[in-house]
Simulated scan of single mutants.
Amino acid sequence: PSWSELPISRVQTVEKGPLSTGSQSAGKSLQMQITNPAIASLPVYSAAQTSAGEASSQIDLQKFSSYYRMDAPESEAQLTSPAEIDLNDLAPQMIYYGSDQKAVPYSQYQSYAASTGANSLWISGKSSWTQYAVVPIGSYLDMIAITPAGGYGNLYKIYPDATLDRNDYSFYPYNLIGFYASDLGEHQLFFNVDGQPSNVIVIYVVPYEQMQPSYGLASITIRSTWLRGYNLYVDGSYAATEGTTGEEDGVLTVNVPGDQSHNIAIDGSGMTFSDSKYFQAGYAYQLNI
């Protein structure tokens, strides 16, 4: 394993990619805050008037950023009709169940889905699917609807005010359905084909405000091309597990108080690593494994 670093101000102005000490592209900066109670009260963002709930929403938006986009769609409809897809083109590596984001390898889920033949609905990301996501108002996302036999059915949506809306569609076995986040609050969606309801997915729409990170913190990113499911510990306290934060595979990012030393430890898949290092405030550090 090896460390690299860049000032956060530079990280924000270059393309996403591995951090380096030269002129190569820099990686993501701030992604999530460590759950260590000793530092949980430290602000991650510099917007002084932002409430705790709003700050949490902005952190969630970073966590789920791989599931939504802000580009304008061809249609302004809140839902698009099911379009047939080749599932092999969109198959994920990992899926996440429920609001607690329980991670399951897609290969394991495939075996279960094939044996039950159940209808299922997912939010599609760059390399994973989820049943829960926090997205900004005005964003767009794709849903994957799977119904083995296909046929005529209904897509239901429960709005934040508890209003129930029904759309009648003809479903293919594998469908891509677009969703436009036009209303703040919690949206619940599910579909029914041949009398068999799917699972419910939850899309929580929040206000969006571009916020700058506080330079009182240092950002630490762990990046590996092969290690998966590893646990990260900061100063002996559990911080996070790879594959549960919505970041790309092998990547895990946390924030720590800057201008002091911290012990960074990793374990998983038979590998253990521990290193104590001084982290300067306002810098983004990357540990390459």
Rank of each mutant, 00 (worst) to 15 (best):
P213F: 04
G138Y: 01
W122M: 03
A239D: 11
F190A: 03
Y233I: 07
P73N: 05
S2I: 09
N199K: 03
N175D: 05
Q33S: 10
S224E: 04
I201H: 02
Y169M: 07
A149S: 14
T245V: 06
I201D: 00
P257S: 02
Y174P: 00
L79S: 01
Y204S: 07
Y96T: 08
T147S: 14
A218I: 03
A149L: 14
G282A: 07
S219A: 15
Q131R: 13
G22R: 15
Q12W: 10
E247R: 05
D259N: 15
Y285H: 03
E76I: 09
Q280V: 12
I95K: 04
D194R: 14
P136F: 01
R166M: 15
N192S: 10
Y174R: 05
S99K: 14
S111L: 14
A113P: 03
A55W: 03
Q286S: 09
I85Q: 04
V134F: 00
Y132G: 10
G282F: 10
A265K: 11
T13R: 15
K157L: 13
S139T: 06
A55R: 13
A113L: 11
V256L: 12
G216D: 14
M143V: 06
T253Y: 01
A145P: 03
I201M: 02
K157I: 07
S170T: 12
E15D: 10
N255S: 15
S124A: 15
M32R: 08
I289E: 02
A77Q: 12
Y45T: 09
N119F: 07
T50C: 09
S23A: 11
S23P: 02
P73E: 01
R10N: 11
S261C: 10
V205S: 02
F64A: 05
A48T: 14
E242I: 06
I59A: 10
P207H: 04
L189M: 11
Y278W: 12
I123P: 02
P73I: 03
G22D: 13
S127T: 13
Y283V: 09
Q49K: 11
L121E: 03
R166H: 04
A72L: 06
S107Y: 10
S127L: 09
N199A: 07
N288G: 05
G153L: 08
K28F: 10
Q12H: 08
Q110L: 15
N88S: 15
P105M: 08
S99M: 08
F279P: 01
T272P: 00
I289M: 13
